[in-house]
């Protein structure tokens, strides 16, 4: 029986400057293989992610499943 693929988890987030002059949210994901990789979300998606996670601060996103990002789309 093949193994199921484990989950990716948010390990941090910070605000960065987007190409078009808007603030963007850089979210760091730790994937199942232990490697971290950044994902950049636009302003609207970033704010939705914070709302979906009940996060009042970007640091509150740590520990959330990557699925929260999917829900913010």
């Amino acid at each position: 029986m093949p193994e199921a693929v484990p989950e990716a988890v948010i390990v941090g987030a910070e605000i960065v400057a987007g190409h078009d002059g808007a603030a963007e949210l850089l979210v760091r994901l730790r994937h199942a293989n232990g490697v971290e990789s950044p994902v950049v979300l636009d302003e609207e998606t970033g704010l939705k992610l914070m709302a979906a996670c009940g996060a009042s601060h970007v640091d509150d996103l740590a520990g959330q499943s990557w699925r929260r990002i999917l829900e913010a789309s």
Binding site: P2, A8, V39, T45, W66, I69, L70, A72
Partner: peptide
């Protein structure tokens, strides 16, 4: 092809949020 479909789809989504979120 060697992965269970549901897990593979999930994994692909998690590796490609530029398509599945943005």
């Amino acid at each position: 092809p060697d992965q269970p479909l549901e897990g593979a789809v999930d994994a692909i989504k998690s590796w490609n949020l530029h398509v599945f979120v943005m």
